[in-house]
Write a protein that binds this DNA or RNA. Structure first.
Lengths: 224, 224
DNA sequence: GAGTACGAAATCGTATACGATAACTATGGC
DNA sequence: GCCATAGTTATCGTATACGATTTCGTACTC
């Protein structure tokens, strides 16, 4: 998974800025000054500008004319939008992948899920989150539609960016989550029909959103 | 709907190239030469490059290092991917919009649908397609989640680009389509539950895809 | 005649430079 | 002391220039 080929400086800048947004180095609201980033990366501003505009099209960055770029997603509403969208996309991606998921994949997912349970016992939310991504990656990586897969990845990136700054771990929800993971695996193993799997996967994420809403009282999607 | 503000030259280039792709001036496979486009638009290559990279992130353009950009979507498989993705996004968008659609919207949609019937009698597939977009726009424009709405628009753009070059009108499917439109409106009017509306909207597009597949024998999504 | 090597042309990729715009700061009036 | 205004600074936006890479055409060899 290591990106050996550096590619053009434009792509280098794209990858670098994206990575910094996803890992939280640049938090939501962070002001992205072109000249500064260019200097940091040892390139000129042109490729950086290009990279930022690409990230804007992916939703990770907000761009304002003659003002500059900021990392998007600082607004709790954005989180709701992202989670809702991801719930839909993920549900579909999981359902489409299901027929292509083999016993080896299931075993790997169970392994990851077991590690997640360990994280709950030793209270390691950071690792838990990382493993959670691994778990779902196993489910998604066989998705036959690359467009949908791409949308899932974008959603995860936005989520990672938001979480890196406003992370809140809800232990109760986390326990539910690993149980739902196992239920999902059993549905897939038993060749359940696509709709059932889709609904289960969708509710899995929607429940996380609900837990967040219940905790933060951040408002609801319908009241806007 | 006229874009009065020209904005920066970068955005001008973005809008111009996008429009040309969507309306078919630049068909799928068309080679986008930066210098040529820059000259056409009376700007330098830098903003054009930026615009192209943004369009790439939206999926309208394919970019290859040191080679150049081409309009994407020439492959029938791409059409399948796009339709499948759109079916999912549209279904969700329609379901989310439904509670916010008022009698005036319904009336407007019925008006458009009536015109679509006229187009079938006088065999005007081009206008039929344009009205079809209008019809669905009425259903989508109230979608409370801007991310989802954005994905719908992107899907329609890609579709328009593909259709502009490989359009095939299937009269039988078109008749079904207007009937399904009316059925959709009735579901919305009767405050049907979200799942029902979502499934109906999704099947509406999926049926169009099936009709295409049946006619062209272009293969299936599962065989890849 | 087919394949290969070389050279020319086209095109991309990025640095630099400079004008344009917005944000900030300080000064003066009330 | 507060607001308005002018000047300054920081940053963006784009044109131009030039090096790097690919592609295409041509000549040469087998």
């Amino acid at each position: 998974m290591t990106e050996t080929a550096v590619g053009s400086k434009s792509e280098q800048a794209y990858a670098a800025v994206k990575a910094r947004i996803v890992d939280g180095t640049y938090s939501p609201g962070y002001r992205l000054v072109l000249a500064k980033i260019a200097e940091d990366l040892g390139v000129s501003v042109v490729p950086v500008r290009e990279a930022i505009r690409r990230l804007e099209a992916e939703g990770l960055v907000k761009f304002e004319r003659n003002v500059g770029a900021t990392v998007s997603g600082i607004d709790p509403t954005e989180y709701l939008y992202t989670m809702q969208t991801l719930s839909i996309i993920e549900g579909a991606a999981t359902a489409l992948s299901a027929p292509l998921i083999g016993p080896a994949d299931i075993a790997r997912a169970r392994e990851v899920n077991a590690e997640m349970r360990d994280c709950l016992e030793h209270f390691d939310p950071v690792r838990f989150t990382a493993l959670n991504q691994d778990f779902h990656s196993v489910l998604f990586e066989h998705c036959p539609n690359p467009h949908i897969l791409d949308l899932v990845h974008r959603g995860w990136n936005r989520l990672a960016s938001i979480r890196a700054s406003t992370f809140r771990f809800v232990p109760g929800r986390a326990h539910e989550s690993v149980d739902e993971h196992e239920a999902l695996l059993q549905l897939i193993e038993s060749n359940a029909d696509a709709d059932t799997i889709e609904q289960a996967a969708r509710r899995h994420r929607a429940a996380t959103l609900d837990a967040y809403l219940a905790q933060s009282n951040a408002g609801s999607l319908s009241a806007h």
